[in-house]
Amino acid sequence: MNAADIKAAIRAQALAAGFDAVGFAPAQLAPEAKGRLQEFLNAGRHGDMGWMVEKADRRGDPQTLWPAARSVVVLGLNYGPDQDPLSILAARDRAAISVYARHRDYHDVVKKRLKQLGRWIAATYGCEIKVFVDTAPVMEKPLAAQGGIGWQGKHTNLVSRAFGSWLFLGEIYLALDVEPDAAEVDHCGACQRCLDVCPTAAFPAPYQLDARRCISYLTIEHAGPIPLEFRPLMGNRIYGCDDCLSVCPWNKFAQATPHAPLVAREDLTAPRLAALAALDDAAFRALFSGSPVKRIGRDRFLRNVLIAIGNSAAAELLPAIEVLLSDPAPIVRGAAVWALSRLDPGNFAARQILALREEFHPDVRSEWTAGIPISTL
């Protein structure tokens, strides 16, 4: 079988395995991709994600990650929503969970299909393979662009002419030479809707992201209290943010996902903030079993929920705050204090002095003093 036949056979098998986009890239990154990564890290825009620095050499060079790599099969799985993800932002007593987390964990869904395809390639062509989803130090989006299945838009995410901004990515590294596809060109043109819509101005310039300002980073990766300046801007976004993805004009060609495991769960599409605030650890684990949300843990999740409650202007949510003011987790108590200062400022000052006599955790004390300065009492 010649090289063209091998490539066609792998593509056909990938589509048969349920992937929606298939491309082939060389096992090396273009110099500009490596340069962008280094600039991102040098500027400290990775925030708390120290693992990006520790594994930068492997992330920037597929052959450092696996020296035997010769080619990369880049694969995309459509997770397009069946409704506008931004419509939930107007329902302030409800929670906005990013589209990618409203269903079964995509890592499991993508990896299962990658392994199926990888086993077939290894058995058919007798070559070694390595399978990767985004938990490994792989620069997926530049590889996908080199493999022709999309381009990195100004929001730094992959954009596809066929699927818009809604593709999960995975890769199979091959110890086999396969002719690469032509890289996709940038079709963003003069459009910058994704930059303009960002609530926290997380894009210093087109094609640049400062993760420290990104709501997805703040609600998922950031472990401590969320900086005060960003809290009012988060609205009811409690896990991730879809704004920059949702406004991309190329989404007009996207279709709702046909993959059952990636169809949004009804209970995660617009859950009530009051119900989420009442979750203990066991209930949190049960609700988010099989979901990527489970990874951040109940305490960090409730931190996010309380910020959304503080932004809700819904006085009926005050009882939920009251309960969490005495939560064992300082990160939850602190967020509850901030939410109280927003929903009940008139009574906040009267409670401040007593609270400061009883609260000894520095982060929570700082929330009480930040709400209303004691000098104004």
Rank of each mutant, 00 (worst) to 15 (best):
F203K: 10
D5I: 12
R113S: 04
A136Y: 14
D48Y: 14
T124P: 00
D344K: 09
P26L: 03
A27T: 07
V263R: 12
W120M: 13
C241T: 08
A17W: 00
T64N: 04
F360C: 04
A182L: 12
D84Q: 06
G164V: 05
M52C: 09
L15S: 10
L37G: 03
I226V: 15
R94L: 07
A270H: 05
W166S: 04
P62E: 03
G310A: 08
Q83S: 14
R58F: 11
D93R: 15
S165G: 01
V73K: 09
V138S: 06
D267F: 00
E171N: 14
S98V: 09
L318G: 02
G334Q: 09
P206E: 11
R357C: 10
K111D: 02
E39C: 06
N78G: 11
N78F: 13
E266C: 01
L169R: 14
Q38K: 12
A283E: 12
G346Q: 14
L276S: 09
G153K: 11
K115I: 10
A286N: 04
M139V: 00
D327Q: 02
L37E: 02
P362G: 00
A336K: 04
A17D: 13
A12T: 08
V332E: 06
T156E: 07
G150H: 13
L324E: 01
E32Y: 10
G164N: 02
G44L: 06
S312N: 06
A25I: 09
K294I: 15
A315F: 01
L302V: 07
W51M: 10
W368E: 08
L268I: 05
A14F: 04
A202Q: 07
S98Y: 11
D327P: 06
G18F: 06
A183Y: 12
L209S: 05
G290E: 13
D57N: 04
G44I: 09
S341H: 14
K112L: 03
A256E: 08
G153T: 06
V293D: 06
L354E: 15
E322A: 07
L268C: 11
V109S: 04
M139R: 09
V197H: 07
G18Y: 01
Y239Q: 02
P271D: 10
D281E: 15
F284L: 08
R45F: 13
D181Q: 11
A9F: 00
Q146W: 09
D48V: 15
A349V: 05
D177A: 15
A12P: 00
L176V: 03
L356I: 08
K34S: 08
I372P: 00
I97K: 13
